[in-house]
Design a protein around this nucleic acid. Structure first.
Lengths: 356, 356
DNA sequence: CTGTTAGCGCATTCAC
DNA sequence: GTGAATGCGCTAACAG
């Protein structure tokens, strides 16, 4: 390995300090004007330049390891090249997938993503995050908090924004999953198996997805001549445990339960175990969150699988469109939305009553 | 609600368009010079101004909803006020906790955090992310990818950076957990219960935490006159399943297994179930990831709980210190590090041999 | 084909 | 106690 060379540091003009190279530095090195260099590096189509000069510029820029200064460029163009995403403070792994899809789409769109987490105790209205755009830290807002309209008639932000996995106060900026289709998979499968009394364990109704699921299930159950009992609890194991106990204490215990998220599912399974109800003989179970671990549980759990990464990606694309001045419309993701059949959903056992 | 007022839009001088208010706008409105306004808003100590004028400025700024432009300020000060965090593309929930801690600490330090996810297929050397600083998108790098030295002698970044939950090539920039202490909790507990043959199921040895754990366990086992068998596999359920099967096929089947992460744990439990090995009678189990769900499984799983949020927060603080010119030293988090005792770790049953 | 000029919004050194 | 001038690094409209 031959030493004596250090290409990392600029070695150009006399007074070249240890500063990062600027446009001016490479312009000087190549003996041209900054604006020419700028246009070449941004390959401005409306510029005719002799290839030789062009190449010299490009080569020099590469040699000096030139990097455009995002702040200077942004200041001039009134664009930051960044998006801000506000996520709820949740353990639920679905947010990891959504975030992943969003980050990927942002990279593809040449944007970076800043993440903020909303404190769990008090949800803030989306307009509270506008300052990020007003301070020129981001070009737009990805509002991924779970709560339905926080407060009275929450002001809608006056900056480019998109609601992710929830709906805002008005149509036009919402990127959501087709929860109705998801619930149809759930209800119709159980109906087909012969169930007539469904239980539903989910988060609080202030969460937009929960609200949409609940509405859909109610309608679908009516359609299929089924009854549905709802319990709402925190998105935690403890919440799922308690709520399931509540469900089992009803006069008309359901023969199948749909469960809103993974954490609640663990709680529910413990409750059933303690009550001596075996799955799926005494109780069928369907999770509304898919996760690989479901296939490895004592009894593998059937679930509804949704394209979460695609949801995050769609939201970013929608936001970029709005930042670019597009008007945009709501996006509803319906594909691929499938039931992952495992062992936890089966025909009800009519003969035996669940021991309480 | 009386209408006719819209405080959101600036209503100052004649030509005031719909643009966001600048320092110049409020200077004009108040009849002073921009520089004065700037100094007041940044409350410059070396400025003597009569309180009345000062208040007038502050009031006007608030009324106009003035927000300093982060790009303009950053350009001037050569500071972005942003940190970049590179995280591995993993399902493992520990990353959510680490990220959470980091975000919170950043907010406290007046910084925003941009997140990048490193593609799983090919890890890139940390220096590949320097461009974020070189482009003035961030002031420093939080390198939270899991791999040990990616490639040969990976160049260390020449910009402010900190390694999070892994060690870089050189000491001085590492913020890591005291894995040795964590492993001591594991080994000594099982030793105390009477186990003599330990199994360890973890990720690949190219992951720095895995490497450190392995080394520590080897040493601790020697100390306590125990043997240890290691299997390394992907951080997935399938990886854990296969590796556990491998462990069970050994001549000297261990009586207890430590498991590197949650996903592998689910796989391991399935393997044990299929082999008819009951926990903890035939096999004790300890997870190196703590999670609430562990308390709700068929047999609640004992785990080592680590302060993950604190780890993320410590890393951000360390990075901010470096950005501010501090030299910084390694940080080792040792508290609170505790064994969460549940049902999966118990005395070995010497009488019966595990049926293979 | 290339150079000149202006200015994005702010902080800061100096002058008065 | 306050104002003027300068420049951070870049792009864009307009000259030549």
């Amino acid at each position: 390995m031959h030493s004596g060379e250090n290409p990392a540091i600029n070695h150009g003009g006399k007074g070249s300090e240890n500063r990062r190279p600027r446009l001016a530095d490479i312009a000087e090195a190549v003996g041209l004007h900054v604006s020419t260099v700028s246009r070449v590096l941004n390959d401005d189509a409306s510029l005719s330049i002799r290839p030789e000069t062009r190449d010299r510029i490009l080569a020099t820029a590469r040699r000096q390891r030139y990097r455009p200064n995002a702040m200077a460029r942004g200041l001039k163009q009134a664009r930051t090249g960044a998006l801000a995403m506000v996520v709820p403070l949740l353990r639920n792994p679905i947010w990891a997938s959504i975030q992943r899809g969003a980050l990927q789409a942002a990279v593809d769109g040449g944007q970076v993503v800043m993440i903020l987490e909303e404190p769990p105790d008090h949800a803030r209205p989306p307009a509270d995050y506008q300052y990020l755009v007003e301070e020129s830290r981001a070009d737009g807002l990805l509002i991924a908090t779970a709560q339905r309209s926080a407060g009275e008639r929450s002001r809608t932000p006056t900056v480019p924004h998109v609601y992710l996995n929830r709906r805002g106060p008005r149509p036009g900026n919402n990127v959501v999953m087709d929860e109705e289709k998801a619930m149809r998979l759930f209800v119709e499968r159980l109906s087909g198996l012969g169930h007539r009394r469904l239980g539903v364990l989910d988060g609080f109704k202030t969460i937009d997805t929960v609200y949409r699921r609940t509405t859909a299930i109610r309608r679908l159950c009516a359609e299929h001549g089924m009854s549905a009992a709802f319990v709402h609890a925190e998105d935690t194991e403890a919440g799922g445990y308690d709520a399931t106990m509540g469900l089992l204490a009803r006069r008309d215990v359901p023969t199948a339960i749909g469960i809103g998220n993974l954490n609640q599912l663990f709680g529910a399974m413990k409750a059933l175990r303690e009550r001596g109800a075996s799955v799926p003989e005494d109780m069928s179970l369907v999770s509304f969150d898919e996760d690989d671990c479901l296939g490895y549980l004592e009894v593998p759990v059937t679930s509804v699988s949704m394209p979460l990464e695609a949801l995050g990606a769609a939201a970013v694309r929608a936001l970029i469109e709005r930042v670019n001045g597009g008007s945009g419309t709501d996006v509803l993701l319906s594909d691929p939305l499938v039931l992952v059949e495992r062992a936890s959903a089966a025909e009800p056992r009519p003969a035996r009553r669940l021991r309480l």
